[in-house]
Design a binder for these strands. Sequence first.
RNA 1: UCCCCGGUAGCUCAAUCGGCAGAGCGGGUGGCUGUUAACCACUAGGUUGAUGGUUCGAGUCCGUCCCGGGGAGCCA
Length: 466
Amino acid sequence: MEKATRIAELFAQSEAYVGKTARVQGWVRTRRDSKAGISFIELNDGSCLKSVQIIADHNHPEYQEILADITTGCSLQVEGTVSPSPGKGQSIEIRANRIKLYGRSDPLTYPLQKKRHSLEFLRQIAHLRPRSNTIGAVTRIRNRLSYGVHQFFQDRGFYYIHTPIITSSDCEGAGEVFRVTTLGPESLLTGQSDNIFEGDFFNRPAFLTVSGQLQAEIYALALGKVYTFGPTFRSENSNTSRHLAEFWMIEPEAAFCDLQDNLELAVEFVKHLVGTILVDCSEDLEFFAHFVEPALLETLQKTVDTSFEIISYKEAVAFLKRSDEAFTFPVEWGNDLQAEHERYLTEKLFQKPVAIIDFPRALKPFYMRVNADEQTVAAMDILVPRIGEIIGGSQREDRRDVLIEQMQLKGISTEEYRWYVELREFGSVPHAGFGCGLERMVQFTTGLPNIREVIPFPRTPGHAEF
RNA sequence: UCCCCGGUAGCUCAAUCGGCAGAGCGGGUGGCUGUUAACCACUAGGUUGAUGGUUCGAGUCCGUCCCGGGGAGCCA
């Protein structure tokens, strides 16, 4: 194939390209004809939000044959002279010398119009929606965030650990699991004994992971600082704008690290990711600020510039009790904070990210470290406006006896998690970590209200298309 | 899973009290123009989500189901 210049590069280095010949490849967004004998073709290659305007002269014998086929959606390669554009709306344009039509696109049946589509409609055409401005911009931001995750941890000496997708434990307390089996439905139906899984691939029940945390702890207690970044699965029948059955989670875990260190790391992490997007994806951000969430840039800039509010659960309850809001759910020490409470704290009271620490022991899972008061655990949730909880983490219980007590209290088998207990028997050390949902970070940085827009192929109850 | 609101042309939506199925955009044709979600004219395009019922008559009312949206729970 002939090599081409990416359109983003063309705009970024436009002064260097003016007067020279360039070759671009992409898909036609729209075409306008002028009876002065030229066509204006907007070509987009996904490298940036902007399309480049191609000027095609009708008198050129080569064009006359293909001009009728250059319609929205078709794929082209164009070679021409990069020139300053006399028209408004773009600094440069390409005066085409050669146009090669790769693939036609029937305008009668091509679903994408140059007009705006609803996000619900675009979801039904997930094979074409990345060609829309919105999904293209989401994809670039998601990519930059993913890269930023690795940059952040690699720069700080964290090792990237690939924790298993298939696991054999289903009682981590992090939600419903998907079963993994090679048994057919008939053997599952006819099997009466508990030993049915002896004939299964793993000779035991197996599931898709709901978290890589427990395995990450193993490696943190050997390599010091590690992180996971991979797909995670929850089979909860939750149908909301913030939940997916398959999503991507980032889970750092650090040894010789307490809740305070963990919290500092998490705050720095959020600021770093948002900061990179503000710098490197400004064009896409402006698009979202214009069409999706007017307060987006302000919210993101504030996230980077101001310190997060850090309060204990106890203080959060006090703030909520003191407020004049008419909450549907009662605020009482020992009750879980409801979405309405979280929203009040981060959107109304503080109007910036809020970290809540030291939750009641009964509300949190067995692995969180019990505080000196024995009533609370060293947990932390970071809430951001619009999204709610974007990060959840804790210092882990590193004392063997307290861990076993917690497991018994929560009904976790010390036999099945023997290895987890052993980590507290052989060189135990204070350690901590957190989980961050990538999609929620993408929602936060794009302003998109529904999580189904921020992952290429969303999996939700009843939906695994494409 | 629960509560509320929706589903009408390819897309976005309108249709008064139950009384002839509509518009804009997109498509086609023609015109105009260094155009910018271009513009002007003409034109094609419908099993009103599915199903059962009430009625002289149902897009509209009732039952059931499917799908979408908002909220809740669960959580990241």
